[in-house]
């Protein structure tokens, strides 16, 4: 075999392997301590069955978060509204009206209407925010203490596709709890 080729190949292969290892290591460590770095699509929010634009609803229409996420101040979950609730505004006759203008919007709204047929298939929204395992998070007390939604969820109004902006690892939670004098007993969240 050509020894010159080997002399070139070994360092090249070695260097690229090293590079890969370094990349992977960096990736794993940052995923471990925080969130995966925004490469390979990791920083993006998941695609949703209906391309719901928070930009239109929050920034343009100026809706308050709690207009749709109604139980956030009283319950564990903020809850994704039921389809019926979408139709408070998007009534059947309004589909072609002023609430939706572009072609894509009409396509997406058609999906919404299709869900009202028989059988009533639910919309399987994809989860955006994930907490580590064995953690219970309750929205209500946070909202009641005056923490704004954007503290954890970022400027949702500017997001075409919603993504997780804060890592919400335990350090993140505990730091905030300490700063605000909130309880830090393990069993407040872990049960």
């Amino acid at each position: 075999m050509n020894s010159r080729l080997i002399k070139i190949a070994v360092p090249v292969v070695g260097a690229s392997v090293l590079l890969v290892v370094a990349f992977v290591g960096w990736f794993v460590l940052s995923a471990w301590w925080s969130n995966p770095p925004p490469v390979l699509g990791f920083g993006e929010g998941p695609e949703q069955p209906i391309a719901f634009p928070h930009t239109v609803h929050v920034s343009d229409a100026g809706l308050d978060c709690q207009f749709c996420h109604r139980t956030v101040s009283t319950d564990e979950a903020a809850t994704i509204p039921a389809v019926a609730q979408c139709l408070f505004c998007h009534g059947f006759d309004k589909i072609d009206g002023r609430l939706s203008t572009s072609g894509t919007a009409q396509e997406e709204l058609a999906k919404l209407i299709a869900d009202l047929g028989e059988p009533q298939e639910p919309i399987n929204w994809n989860r955006v925010y994930r907490l580590p395992d064995h953690v219970q998070f309750v929205h209500a007390p946070h909202i009641q203490q005056g923490i704004s939604c954007s503290t954890c969820h970022g400027e949702i109004g500017t997001m075409q596709v919603v993504k997780q902006v804060r890592n919400l690892k335990m350090r993140d939670c505990v730091d905030c709890h300490r700063d605000n004098g909130a309880p830090t007993d393990c069993s407040i969240c872990h049960y």
Partner: peptide, 19 residues
Amino acid sequence: HEIQVQSPVQIPEDLVTGR
């Protein structure tokens, strides 16, 4: 099964989810 928000199969639409 964890990626999807718990799918409300055949849920009556007047029910607010998560409560």
